[in-house]
Structures are given as C-alpha cells and as structure tokens.
Design a protein around this nucleic acid. Structure first.
Length: 110
DNA sequence: TGAGTGACTGTAA
DNA sequence: CTTACAGCCACTC
C-alpha cells in the first residue's frame, strides 16, 4: 500500500526529480527544491524523501555540503554509503568525495 | 488551534 | 576555519 499520496503534489514532484538523477551522480535537497519551485522548501524535500518509496534513489540526494545526512533513514546507515559506493561514488566520513564534480543539477535536464 | 519536529539553507559571529 | 541562529513549509500530536 502506498500512503505517500498524503500531499500528492510536493512529494510527487520531488520523487519525479529524484528518479531523474543518473547513477553515479548526486544532488542536493536545495537543488531539487528550486527545480520544483519550492526554493525555500529544502526541508520539505528531506521530509518527502523520508516518505520516498524504494523506487526513488534517495541515496543520491544529499545536503548542500555533500554529507549523507539522511543515511539513518535507510534502516541502516551503512546502506546509503554502500549504495553510493556501488555506483562508483566515493564516500569518506559520511561525505561524498568530489561532491561538486559528481553534483547533478536537475535544472540542467529540465 | 497551537506547538513541536525535521534527510535544509543562508547569513552572521 | 567552525559554531550559532533564524527562516522556511508540511506533518503529527
């Protein structure tokens, strides 16, 4: 059952963007928020991600500093890091290496 | 209805 | 450089 339809608008948009993130690439909550028009809803993006279904690569979404702030939401903190490493993303001290280089701007695709 | 919380961000000290 | 504070929107109790 999917109870994600709580808002059915904001979260859906966030999920749509998150699915556009290519493997091996990462983005920030603020970037997604701006892309959907909620520039000041960066926190809402995180909230939506917490509710994000498994078909959404939430592990590719980090804060603006490239830190795995939401790793605890994956059930196991090591899960998110492992997923990123599996995609070729280096993670050190809960932080993505060369975050600026791996950063993927949703606006670039839209 | 009101207060508290959160996977954030930007500016200030 | 790091640490603190405030603003922001949506949700839950």
């Amino acid at each position: 059952m999917k109870d994600i339809t709580a808002t059915g608008s904001f979260a859906d948009l966030v999920y749509d963007i998150a699915r556009q993130i290519p493997a091996g690439r990462v983005t920030s909550y603020g970037a997604i928020a701006r892309c959907i028009g909620a520039a000041r809803g960066s926190r809402m993006v995180g909230w939506a991600m917490n509710k994000a279904p498994q078909d959404v690569p939430a592990h590719r979404v980090l804060n603006r500093n490239g830190v795995l702030t939401g790793k605890h939401a994956f059930g196991d903190p090591e899960r998110m890091e492992q997923l990123l490493r599996s995609e070729g993303v280096q993670v050190v001290n809960d932080q993505v290496v060369r975050f600026a280089d791996l950063f993927w701007d949703p606006m670039t695709e839209f």
